[in-house]
Design a protein around this nucleic acid. Structure first.
Length: 424
RNA sequence: GCGAGCGUCGCCAAGUGGUUAAGGCAGUGGAUUGUGGUUCCACCAUUCGUGGGUUCAAGUCCCAUCGUUCGCCCCA
């Protein structure tokens, strides 16, 4: 009974679930349009060194989670683990900076990371994300955050926390890094194993360790916010001020350190308390150094990515609205079955949704299925109806039934559409 | 990559070494040759993720493997 299964960490999105995906996608498109963002589609795989240089070799994403393979031409390629690097590459490669100032872009698609699967985390997962390239203005940071919050609100997802931090510019970070190492070194032996390991490699990451003992030590550690230079402080201040103007509440969390190396200044996450361990549904921030690092002209940028699977999980916790079909067509008898196909198609041509019963079984069985199909009404077509060019319309919610000329349904569409609305 | 749990029909499950693998939902047929949502009856796993082992006997114990869940790491 096993046979071939979907590969580990991948899964099928079945019709039952796909409505949620479509809802997210269409709401996202609408939000992006209102904010004047345009879609960009980049390849699913890239040269491996794009990610090594862009994301950072010290990160876990690059160090142990990449799907890397050698193709037949002996090139090292990698399935994209995130979307920003590819967008940045495209921006440089196609000289999008020359196309007049700021580029506002969005993307959505499958990403790949070789990780241990658990709830809200797959090896193939899907993100929708936005990037603003070419603006250092704090209003750009606020714009993308506003967009994320708007999208989540239109989806009816509340109960969220926006965590905000600034990781400063390169200099700020270097000074803070030194201070943090100085502070932590005396405690080295009391840190958990992972954190000890990171002390030299990536000390900032120790800040969001979940180990209680490490957290205790971190509590009294110096805060990055005290190490921001005047410019960084000003930028962060303006972001907060503007968020407040817009009525978007947030929590400053000085130990919020995003995983990827390219972040500068603003870092943020939107979290839900309903997702267990994988609580972040949206993560992003500013990455002023990335384009430069990839060989383009120094270009400030800011963006975020949302995890579609996690959004779907949240939507599923809320109520479900099953897709309704207008008519279920039950027919019996050779003539009726044959003409039923023609009639159903005529109904579809004027805009109705029609599901045809293909079983050929008795009317009581077909009615039973009509009931379960969720249709508003069952159309019954038998020998008698064929003779009179009529059809029985049985409203499934009330059991009321009427005899109607077939042509009535096809010509008085507005009237029937209204009746269908009343009998949902 | 590390730690723990789980894997019996399409779905939810009982079963805790003794030989016939409960039950519910769904499905199919009938009671009802053209009228559903209620009811009643019947049918629906030679087999317990897979492979190997222990035993007179294994869904039940052991090992391996695959998948999954939860936590860690990390992240969306």
């Amino acid at each position: 009974m096993v046979g071939i299964q979907a590969a580990r960490g991948t899964r099928d999105i079945l019709p039952e679930e796909v409505g949620y995906w479509q809802q997210i996608e269409s709401n996202a498109r609408d939000i992006f349009r209102r904010f004047a963002y345009r879609e960009i589609r980049t390849p699913v795989f890239e040269q491996t060194n794009l990610f090594e240089r862009g994301i950072g070799e010290a990160t876990d994403v690059v160090g142990k989670e990449m799907y890397t393979f050698i193709d037949r031409g002996d090139r090292s390629l990698t399935l994209r683990p995130e979307g920003t690097a590819g967008v940045a590459r495209a921006y440089i490669e196609h000289h999008l900076s020359a196309m007049g100032g700021i580029q506002r872009l969005w993307y959505s698609g499958a990403m790949f990371r070789y990780e241990r699967p658990q709830a809200g985390r797959q090896r193939q997962f899907h993100q929708v994300g936005v990037e603003v390239l070419g603006s250092a203005d704090p209003r750009a940071d606020v714009e993308v955050i506003t967009m994320a919050v708007s999208l989540l609100n239109t989806l009816g997802i509340y109960d969220l926390t926006l965590a905000l931090n600034s990781v400063g510019d390169g200099d700020d970070r270097n000074r803070y890094r030194t201070a943090l190492i100085d502070y932590l070194t005396p405690f080295q032996s009391h840190l958990d194993e992972d954190s000890q390991d990171r002390l030299l490699r990536n000390p900032l990451r120790i800040l969001d360790s979940k180990n209680t003992k490490t957290q205790e030590i971190i509590r009294h550690a110096p805060s990055i916010l005290d190490y921001l230079g005047a410019q960084s402080r000003h930028h962060f201040h303006q972001v907060q001020e503007s968020l407040t103007d817009l009525g978007i509440s947030y929590t400053v969390n000085p130990s919020l350190v995003r995983g990827l190396d390219y972040y500068t200044h603003t870092a943020f996450e939107i979290q839900s308390s309903h997702l267990g361990s994988q609580s972040t549904i949206c993560g992003g921030g500013r990455y002023d150094g990335l384009i430069d690092q990839l060989g383009g002209d120094s270009t400030p940028a800011v963006g975020w990515a949302m995890g579609m699977e996690r959004l779907v999980l949240l939507l599923q916790l809320q109520s479900i609205s099953p897709t309704k079909i207008d008519f279920y067509l039950a027919s019996k008898g050779q003539q009726a079955e044959r003409q039923g196909m023609v009639f159903a198609q005529a109904l579809r041509n004027v805009g109705f949704g029609v599901e045809v019963d293909l079983s050929g079984s008795a009317f009581n069985k077909q009615l039973k299925r009509a009931d379960r199909s969720g249709a508003s009404a069952c159309l019954i077509l038998g020998d008698g109806e064929i003779e009179h060019q009529s059809v029985q319309v049985k409203w499934l919610a009330t059991g009321n039934q009427e005899t109607v000329n077939q042509s009535d349904l096809l010509t008085q569409v507005d009237y029937w559409r209204q009746r269908l609305g009343e009998n949902m």
